[in-house]
């Protein structure tokens, strides 16, 4: 389906982002972002602000570049040799791609949850304690215990696993594993959490739990979520950005995007013409 739309006139059609991509005092601001894999361009001139303590959903057909864009925030693309990022990323006032910016420090501040739950083959406790131990966030065992317990509580997993913290993290169910990964991320106390389709590998009940969790986490964290499901975007986010073929087509309040999309492409997507 996407093949059909990939015609020059479509690129013409997405000349400028509809809606306002900018916010007052953004947590993260991005300007004129281009991303290349070797010679192939994946993201075209995207500018977008992420507001403090909001959940913003990035939606769009598969292959539209939303995951690529998301992975630029915590420089996960550094690990891919062929990937090149230009443009401006700022976390509050700091340049994310500045020479002096240490990706290790950056990732301690911007956490990430992946599409497929990826707990380490360690115990539940060690999974959550991994980050705090790395960064030296706990000065003794008691503090570490406290961080682990509170992280598990915040991730809504504690009640289910409190009796078997030493059991392997890989032995949990898919939904539990994903919440464990969220707990693991929270344990480092990041300011922003990136979520790359966090519920796409889960069943509906587990998905609902994760969605509730995201809503609670909004109190303390800024959350950027990539999702394939429009319903999920509508349920969890305050703002929504629609990507198409590497371009940011439209951004606005979630309500407005889903009830009254301004751009023809957004409307086509929302109404299910392509996906």
């Amino acid at each position: 389906m996407t093949q059909v739309i990939e015609a020059p006139d479509i690129h013409q059609a997405i000349k400028q982002t509809v809606g306002s991509p900018f916010t007052h005092k953004p947590k993260i601001s991005t300007r004129n972002v281009d991303v290349f894999y070797d010679d192939k361009q994946a993201i075209f001139d995207v500018s977008l602000d992420i507001g403090s303590h909001e959940v913003i959903a990035l939606i769009g057909p598969s292959g539209c570049g939303k995951s690529t864009y998301l992975r630029c925030f915590n420089r996960m693309n550094d690990t891919i040799q062929s990937c090149r990022v230009t443009g401006e990323f700022r976390l509050e006032e700091e340049d994310i791609y500045a020479r002096g910016m240490d990706p290790v420090l950056l990732r301690a501040r911007i956490g990430m949850v992946f599409q497929k739950p990826n707990p380490f083959p360690k115990s539940i406790y060690d999974n959550v304690a991994y980050g705090p131990k790395l960064h030296g966030l706990a000065s003794n065992r008691a503090e570490l215990d406290e961080i682990v317990v509170s992280s598990l509580q915040k991730a809504g997993l504690y009640e289910e696993v409190k009796d078997r913290l030493n059991a392997s993290g890989t032995g949990l169910s898919g939904g539990q594993q994903q919440r464990l990964c969220i707990a693991r991320t929270i344990a480092v106390s990041p300011e922003v959490i990136l979520m790359d389709e966090p519920a796409s590998a889960l069943d509906p009940i587990a998905t609902a739990t994760i969605e509730e969790l995201i809503d609670e986490l909004r109190q303390n964290y800024t959350i950027v979520i990539v999702t394939h499901s429009m319903q999920q975007a509508a349920r969890v986010s305050q703002r929504t950005a629609y990507f198409h073929l590497g371009k940011l087509v439209e951004v606005g309040d979630t309500n407005q995007i889903f009830t009254n999309p301004q751009h023809q492409l957004t409307e086509n997507y929302i109404t299910g013409r392509f996906g």
Partner: peptide
Amino acid sequence: PEAMREGSYALGATRAETVRKV
């Protein structure tokens, strides 16, 4: 799996820490 490495990087581990601990 690559996902293990990514999970570790995303928590702010260095490459050496990822190798040694994951």
